[in-house]
Structure formats: C-alpha cells, structure tokens
Lab assay of single mutants.
Amino acid sequence: ENVVSAPMPGKVLRVLVRVGDRVRVGQGLLVLEAMKMENEIPSPRDGVVKRILVKEGEIVDTGQPLIELG
C-alpha cells in the first residue's frame, strides 16, 4: 500500500512529515480534523515519504489520497 488515503472527510490541520522522511508503521503522518476532533493519521507501513498530496488547511473527502510512500 503506497498511498495513504483519508479515512473520513475533514480538514488537514498539520502535516507531520516531509518528503524524504523515513517513517515507521503507526507513526503519525498528518492530523485531520473531523467533527471538531483531531485525528492523527498513521503510516500503514515502514517506508519513505515520496510525495505529500495535500496542504495544511485543505478540505479532503473520504478516500482522497494524502501521502505517497516509497
């Protein structure tokens, strides 16, 4: 699984990683606000951040690609 998608609609509050960062399974990639709750979106696997597909403040839909892992 190379693309991390939004599990719910919401607003991207914070991106916690940068392109080139090594991440571990379960590590927070970004914080999504949904229904006034902050939800940290975890990495599904170990890898390297290849691309960040959203910006802070952006509104996303369920299933929208957020981050690509390499």
Rank of each mutant, 00 (worst) to 15 (best):
L16D: 15
T62L: 07
G10P: 00
V4T: 12
E33T: 08
R18F: 15
V31T: 10
V3M: 08
R51Y: 11
I41R: 13
V12N: 11
Q64D: 03
V31M: 03
R45P: 01
G28V: 11
L30K: 00
S43R: 00
G26Q: 02
M37I: 06
G28C: 01
V12R: 00
R18G: 11
L69A: 08
V4Q: 10
K50N: 12
G63N: 03
K50C: 01
V12F: 06
I59T: 05
K36M: 10
K36F: 15
K36L: 08
L69P: 02
V19Q: 03
P42Y: 07
N39K: 13
Q64S: 10
P65T: 07
N2Y: 02
R45L: 04
V54H: 13
L29S: 13
S5H: 08
V48R: 04
D46P: 09
V17I: 10
P65S: 08
A6T: 14
K11S: 13
L30P: 00
P7G: 04
S43Q: 02
L32P: 00
R24T: 12
G26S: 11
T62D: 10
I41Y: 12
N2T: 06
S43P: 01
P44A: 12
M37E: 06
L66Q: 04
L16V: 13
N2E: 14
P65H: 14
P7T: 06
P7R: 06
I67N: 05
E40F: 03
T62V: 03
P44H: 12
R51G: 15
V15K: 04
D21L: 05
V15H: 04
I67T: 10
D21P: 04
G10R: 01
E40W: 10
V15L: 15
R22S: 14
P7I: 06
V17G: 10
L13F: 09
V17W: 02
V12H: 02
I67F: 07
D21Q: 02
L69Y: 11
Q27L: 06
V17T: 03
A34F: 11
E1H: 01
E40V: 05
K55H: 05
L29M: 06
N2V: 14
K50S: 07
L13P: 08
G20F: 02
K36S: 12
K11H: 10
E38F: 06
G70L: 02
G70Q: 06
V31C: 00
R14M: 08
V17C: 01
P7A: 04
L13A: 04
R14S: 08
I67Q: 15
N2A: 09
S5D: 04
A34Y: 04
E1Y: 01
I52D: 10
K36R: 11
P42G: 07
G28W: 07
E1D: 07
V19S: 05
K36V: 14
V4I: 03
R45I: 05
K50T: 14
G26D: 13
M35G: 09
D46A: 06
K50L: 03
K11Q: 08
V17S: 15
L66M: 08
E33M: 10
K50R: 06
P9H: 15
V17E: 15
V25N: 10
M37Y: 07
N2G: 08
E58N: 13
A6N: 04
I67C: 00
K36T: 14
G63F: 15
G10T: 12
G57T: 15
S43K: 00
P42R: 14
V12Q: 01
L13D: 04
G28E: 09
V31Q: 10
K11I: 10
V31Y: 05
G63S: 05
V48N: 07
L13Y: 08
V25G: 06
G26K: 06
I41L: 13
G70C: 01
L66E: 00
G57D: 06
R51N: 07
R45E: 09
V60H: 03
G20E: 12
R18V: 13
E38C: 01
M37W: 09
G47M: 15
S5K: 10
P7E: 09
E33P: 02
D46S: 04
A34P: 06
G57W: 08
L30A: 02
L32H: 11
G20Q: 10
P42N: 08
M35S: 12
P7N: 03
Q27A: 07
L53N: 10
L13S: 15
V4K: 03
I67W: 11
V19D: 14
K11R: 09
P42H: 08
G47A: 08
I59Y: 15
E58H: 07
V15G: 14
A6W: 07
E38R: 09
E56M: 08
P44E: 10
I67K: 00
P9M: 10
L66I: 15
M37S: 03
E1I: 02
T62S: 10
M8T: 09
I59F: 07
G57M: 13
R45S: 15
E58A: 14
A6L: 06
V23T: 10
L32M: 03
P44G: 14
D46M: 03
L32K: 05
I59A: 03
L53E: 15
V15M: 10
M35I: 03
D21A: 04
V19P: 09
Q64N: 12
T62R: 02
L30D: 00
V15C: 01
E40T: 06
N39A: 04
I59S: 12
R45T: 02
K50D: 08
V54C: 01
V60L: 05
G63V: 07
V49W: 00
K36D: 02
I59G: 08
N39R: 09
M35W: 10
R22N: 06
D46H: 04
V31F: 06
G20N: 14
L32Y: 06
G63I: 08
D61M: 15
L69G: 11
L29T: 06
K50V: 08
P42D: 09
E58Y: 08
I41W: 05
V48E: 06
P65L: 09
T62C: 00
M37N: 05
G47W: 08
P44N: 14
E1V: 11
K11V: 04
P65I: 09
V60K: 02
V4E: 05
G47Y: 08
R18Q: 04
L29D: 00
V17Q: 14
G20S: 07
N39T: 09
V12K: 00
L66P: 00
L32W: 05
G26W: 09
M35Y: 11
D21I: 04
V48A: 07
V12C: 01
E56D: 11
P65M: 15
V15N: 13
D46Q: 04
R14E: 14
E68V: 07
M37A: 10
Q27S: 09
I52V: 04
D61S: 05
K50E: 11
L13N: 13
V48G: 13
V25E: 11
L30W: 09
R14T: 08
L30M: 06
V12D: 00
V48D: 12
V49E: 00
A34H: 08
E68L: 05
K55D: 05
V12I: 11
I67G: 15
V17D: 15
T62W: 07
A6Y: 10
E1F: 00
D61V: 11
S5I: 12
K55P: 03
G28Y: 13
E56V: 04
P7S: 07
V25W: 09
V31K: 09
E68T: 01
L29I: 12
L53S: 03
P9Q: 06
L32A: 11
D61R: 05
E58D: 13
